[in-house]
Design a protein around this nucleic acid. Structure first.
Lengths: 206, 206, 206, 206
DNA sequence: GATGAATGAGTTTTCATTCAT
DNA sequence: GATGAATGAAAACTCATTCAT
């Protein structure tokens, strides 16, 4: 089952956009990378902007999915849920650096219409974090006095992973995840209520 | 003392680069914004790439300076020094969003030579944070088990400020600074040795 | 009996050619307008040029036919025949503005071969007018000293109708016809020989 | 005094537009004809559409001027004024067939804004004819019952001249003018009041 | 009869840069 | 110091047309 033309194109475009940036990437080079003529490419996507939007959409789709899965597997405990969400995010950023960096960097290149649509989708992800933080605070397990900035900080921290993490390095992906989960819990000032989470994965208790 | 032509040009270019990105910005528009002919512009800067490098250099210069000043005014205590550095960084990102965002975003657009030079300069800033964290850990006042990631996290967090902070909003710049200082100290798990900082803004001591 | 594919195509093409002009019209849009695939269209017509020629041919066919009918119904009197021909022409221009305007405007877009063929057909129409004028002059009922220019004038006048006449307006088509018949007779300086046409619709007799 | 670059370009563009039509003409060929690079051309005119508008403007300017001059030299008599206007028009169409045909044919290719501006300018010319006809009718020297259609007819007739007249032929330009003046006066049913125009150039009086 | 895919040459336009003055 | 003119390469995109199925 060879990859569909659409996928071939999107992959080529994502690489070019990641390496050079949207504006500097050329349709010619994308077509070359996808090993087809420019006109063939235009047969599948009506323009450069649509290519970008398709890539961003796909990126958000994929990220949204891993988040949903992780949260579905997690219980109701806010710490557990934050753990799941941070884990999913870091894992995604580490596994799909290209997908991630385009998603993060190229907002600016979107047409007004697409930008609006895209921002709405991103806001949904933000709200996932927000909901968990609010819940944790309400339950008294997160005690950060600055939930909004803590949220922004966590997201910025996790997103940055896609810029420096290299799987070939010493740090395994799961160790990486563990670290960022720990950092996130620290940032929100997590204090387990009772003894409910004895082997808490963050070291503050140690 | 009216602004020198160099400054006029750099300001115009920075705005264009910020709004459109380096690749999408056009020398024509920069010249128009600087209210001079393209040839005049070329008289001062030999090319687009040099314009970018000048902007980045200037950005790093300015940032380096505020960091140095802040650190000079701070004592030897790691917490105090981290406070100074985070404060300087957040203040800079909030005050100079354009300077900041170009600095952060346009690495990709640098020529190989310029990129090397630029990375070296950036590394110096990173080392400032690094030194403070190491010192704090050595002294036993920072107890984060992940100093590298905490550092990266702090920097990412602070940098992100330039993307969302609006001075017209409710949050004053100094409140913002206070928040990020607090978050940074939380993240490195700061525990004051003695009673030096009695009203410690983070609850990790519990 | 639903319209044949040929007709659907020709109608779509004529509209596109009229609205945008031959050169600016695109086969893609024509196919879209005809609600079929481009390949389907190419199944019926081998190319854009052939489409144009088919349209022009059809236009000339239709016009030729109405002229022939009108003349067949007219008697031998030159005034009556001119009346018939001008009436047929104006009626056609008013009823089929698209057909008319393509016919008139797109000569330029014909390939050399097609152009020759087309001009020959047009010349036939011209000769109809010419014959009638010559006859009228020979019989002494038309006394214009410039029969060639009067002919060209009449044709130009009638053709222009397709550019401005709107059936929704106040002027009915038959009133329009009457006017142009009158103007044409005036232009050729028609003077009835005897009392054959008592209520002559033109005022030269006064 | 060699022709300015602007003029060189406009002349080249007018020829291409006349020969091929606006849509089919290519900027490349225009530049080639003007013997300069495409980018040089773009240095003077920002786009194809502006080229067209410049040409049409120039055409209307020139035509407007000859009309104004002719009318200035004519007296108050409507017949004399119509003579002047038809003469100027026919002379212009015969002398500047390219200018004329672009003016007449390429309305369709104008952008909405330009079209509006252009139509307003054309309307002024139409009003010249209209004023004269109304005056002639008021004074009782023109007795056409259809002044609007007579006007349209005269204009269509005169405009058509640019399509067929060749100065190399037998008919001199001044003879041509004389003919069309005569035809126009016939069409408006000119009857000199008194004996003011004894050698009237139209035969209605004979 | 009909289709979706593909192509290569073409389009207008923009770009960073250079040069003569 | 400064300018308007000029350039060649490249950009995104469209076109009429062909072809395998």
């Amino acid at each position: 089952m060879r990859p569909t033309r659409h996928k071939t194109i999107i992959d080529a475009a994502r690489l070019e956009f990641t390496e050079r940036g949207f504006a500097a990437a050329s349709i010619r080079d994308i077509a070359k990378r996808a090993d087809m003529s420019m006109s063939a490419l235009y047969h599948y996507y009506p323009g450069k902007q649509d290519l970008l939007m398709a890539i961003l959409d796909e990126g958000v789709d994929a990220y949204t999915e891993v988040c949903a899965e992780a949260l579905a597997a997690a219980g109701a405990d806010p710490a557990e849920r934050l753990e799941a969400l941070v884990g999913a995010t870091v894992r995604f950023r580490a596994e799909h650096p290209a997908k991630s960096s385009v998603t993060i960097t190229e907002e600016r290149s979107l047409s007004p219409d697409n930008l609006r649509r895209y921002r709405e989708r991103l806001a949904a992800s933000t709200r996932l974090f927000q909901g968990i933080l609010e819940d944790g605070i309400a339950r008294g397990v997160f005690s950060t006095p600055y939930p909004d900035d803590a949220r922004r900080g966590i997201i910025a921290m996790c997103n940055a992973v896609s810029q420096w993490y290299r799987p070939e390095g010493e740090l395994t992906r799961e160790d990486l995840v563990e670290r960022y989960v720990s950092l996130a819990l620290t940032l929100v000032e997590y204090h387990p209520r009772a003894a409910r989470r004895p082997p808490a994965p963050h070291p503050a208790s140690g």
